[in-house]
Amino acid sequence: MLEQILASLDESEREAIDEEELQVLERVESELVTFPSEPSHLLPILQHIQARHGYLPKLALRLVADYVGVAIGKVYGIATFYNQFRFNPPGRNPIKVCLGTACHVKGGDIILENFERRLGIREGETTADREYSLERVACIGCCALAPAVVVGDKVEAYVTPSKVEGIITEIEVRKEMAAREQKKNETANG
């Protein structure tokens, strides 16, 4: 199934699929057979892919659409109705901006906008290097810390636009340090 779909793509479309995505697709294809191929199993299948792989790649939706016999446009329509599904791979630093009532009142939407501008992606997207992904969530249970943001599994409290800058810088610095550390180890070992 996957092979045929890949063969039907244009050269440029095929090239747009990276190694990581290809692996996800191959696994999705083999996992699909554990579900009955009926439209009524569409949602459980989507939930499974989301839980197992963290997002629904476009070609996975195509696989699922063919498998249960529902057009891909419909599958997407159904999937986008729910907040639980993502269509871009999660970044190494997933950023979740809370827009629950308290955070919203405290300007969570401005914080989200700040992240969007800083990272150059929209909510629901992932940066091209897969370093960051941005998401809005509804109430993380930290209303007293509003506006709150979850970076990875760490909660950031009372976030302000300057703190947005600080959060990203901190991640970048840590990344830089880890890279240097690795290089040092390599030269020491080598």
Binding site: S8, L9, E13, K58, L59, R62, A65, I72, G73
Partner: peptide, 11 residues
């Protein structure tokens, strides 16, 4: 109204 996937759907 979405056209998601129409680029990879020969139909």
């Amino acid at each position: 109204i979405s056209f998601y996937g129409s680029d990879i759907d020969p139909a």
